[in-house]
Computed example of a mutant assay.
Amino acid sequence: MTETLAALLIFLLPLAYSPGPGNMVFAAMGARHGVRSTWRASLGYHAATWLVTLAIGLGFDTALAERPVIARAVQMVGVLYVLWLAHGLWRAGAAREVKCAAPAIGFGGGVVLLVFNPKAYMIIALMFTQFAQASGLSTVGVTTVFTLNNALAFTLWAAVGATLTRFWARPETAARLNKGLALMLATVAVWMAVG
């Protein structure tokens, strides 16, 4: 089991820690509002991650594969949500202003981010093709390891975002940071749309 767990973590390393829709949203939230502001969204995202991962591990991915129209609709809703977040960042001024145009998303926003992120579904399905029959790890075990590893990645990305804010604390530079983060999120949305 120890070897299987190590293999799973090595497999997840580039997937969980490389830039993607979730990581970029949490980096932007960390930059905009600080790391502590991300905990509600992270809790929502990762509660949904655990449930969706378990469902995929138990066969939900097959059901979506048989209904490509529904899968595409889920994908496009995710694209629109990430674009909405990018729009809020684009319009935002300096970090931590009293009237913030890009509020931190909460528990429900975190759930929405996961549910409408088709890239997450693909990563999860890929993970189960490699580890579904792994000795010593049940579907629940793989689901839990995946979720906890992903939560750590999001926390690190939020910290990176918060660190960027310290370097760009003046209103002029904060606006540039927000616009840069917005463009990153918009790029992620395009990537989600064509993926």
Results as ranks from 00 to 15, higher is better:
L126M: 15
V52W: 14
G78S: 07
L156F: 14
G59R: 13
N117K: 01
P21Q: 02
V74G: 10
N150P: 00
W50M: 00
V69S: 15
W50T: 02
T155F: 02
L148D: 06
T62I: 13
L126Y: 13
L13S: 09
L54I: 05
A104L: 10
A86T: 11
H46A: 02
A41W: 00
L85M: 15
Y121L: 04
V142E: 12
L8E: 06
M192P: 09
L177S: 03
K179L: 04
I70G: 14
V145Q: 06
T139L: 07
W50A: 01
V160M: 13
R176L: 14
G30H: 01
A16C: 06
L126A: 15
L114M: 01
L185Y: 00
F131R: 01
A193S: 01
E3F: 05
T187C: 07
T129E: 09
G59K: 07
R96G: 11
V140Q: 07
G195H: 12
Y45D: 13
L89A: 02
A28H: 01
V69I: 14
P14K: 11
R36C: 09
V188N: 06
A86K: 06
L13D: 03
T143N: 07
V74P: 08
L126V: 13
V69Y: 10
W191T: 12
T147A: 02
F107E: 11
T173Y: 09
T143S: 10
R67E: 15
G108T: 08
F146R: 06
M127W: 09
A27D: 08
L113N: 07
S135G: 09
G30E: 09
G59P: 04
Q133R: 13
A6I: 13
L113A: 10
K99P: 01
W157N: 00
Y17R: 11
T139F: 01
I105D: 03
A41R: 03
G93F: 00
L9V: 05
L5Y: 10
T2G: 09
A92N: 01
E66C: 05
T147V: 02
G195F: 06
R91Y: 04
